[in-house]
Amino acid sequence: MKSMTGYGYGEYQDERVQLSLEIKSYNNRYLDIIVNLPSAISPLEQRIRDFIATQTIRGRVEVYLKLRDLQENAEVHVDRGAVQGYLDALGELASLAGTSAEISLPMLLQLEGVLSIDRRRDVDQYWAVIEPLLHRTYREFDESRAREGASTLTDIEEQLSRIAAQVEIIEGLAPGLEEQIKSSLRDRFREVMGESVDENRLYAEAAVLLVRYSINEELVRMKTHIDAFRRTLGDGEEGRGVGKKLDFICQELNREINTTGSKSTIVEINQCGIEIKDALENIREQLRNVE
């Protein structure tokens, strides 16, 4: 089991380039990848997205890469047209002002567009050093998610044990619910018919009510859901996404305990139902941050 919250940071430097990479994530219903790169290497964004998408199932994952070139492969060009244009304009200005035009090199260098710099960047060369840094940083990021997921798993297992214990209590109280139905029905018959109660009629009516109010099916389904929950937890031991499956099982458990509560007239059963719903809410709160 892995949390959707994680953090990883990595750095790399050689004689040509200095890199820092940060990966962090938050809970999200679906997979949402945000990649922030310097514009010079923006063509690499899709490669980073593809890598994250193959490793992560859901969550908002943010990737920030900073780059500093220590040795730039750049060419400086003189814009001859711009230089000539400036010279012509300055000469015309001097003529209109009635002064001599003294144009120096420092003056020309301050004028926009006289020089242009062409920085040659081969994105594949950058990728050669970014890719291993990305893998290394993601491992750190993934380990942090696994650590938090392990803590979450411990709490979920405790809450599930709490639910299973309450279901056992309800199962022990269920016969009392059936006896209560029979006793209540017998009292009603006596109110109407006195002591001359037709036992066959009584049993027939009791059978109808037991079919309607019996919680045996709900108990069977609750135990089945608990078993399915445990199996799914086992499926997620290697960190693969189980959050959505577990949340669905919680919904089904909640449905069964609601039905049980609507049928029960025994206070102790209803109290167990409250405990189960509280534990379920705790589990679902944790599952909101499980991948």
Rank of each mutant, 00 (worst) to 15 (best):
L87H: 05
A89G: 07
L87S: 08
V63R: 00
V129G: 00
L93P: 02
E158L: 15
Y64P: 01
L105S: 12
S151I: 08
T152P: 00
L67H: 09
Q110M: 10
F141C: 03
V114Y: 01
V63E: 02
A89R: 06
D124T: 07
R120I: 12
L90H: 04
L109C: 14
L67D: 04
P132S: 05
S116F: 09
V78K: 06
D122Y: 10
A150C: 09
E157S: 06
R136M: 09
A128Q: 11
E72Y: 07
A82R: 04
R58H: 03
S151M: 11
V123R: 00
F141E: 01
A150V: 09
S151W: 09
E131S: 11
G113W: 05
L105V: 15
D118H: 12
A150D: 06
Q84H: 09
S144R: 05
V63M: 04
A150L: 13
V83W: 00
P106S: 11
Q110N: 11
K66F: 10
Y138I: 01
D69L: 14
A150T: 07
Q84R: 09
Y64C: 06
S116N: 06
V83M: 05
E102V: 12
L133F: 08
L108N: 04
L65K: 02
G81C: 05
S100I: 14
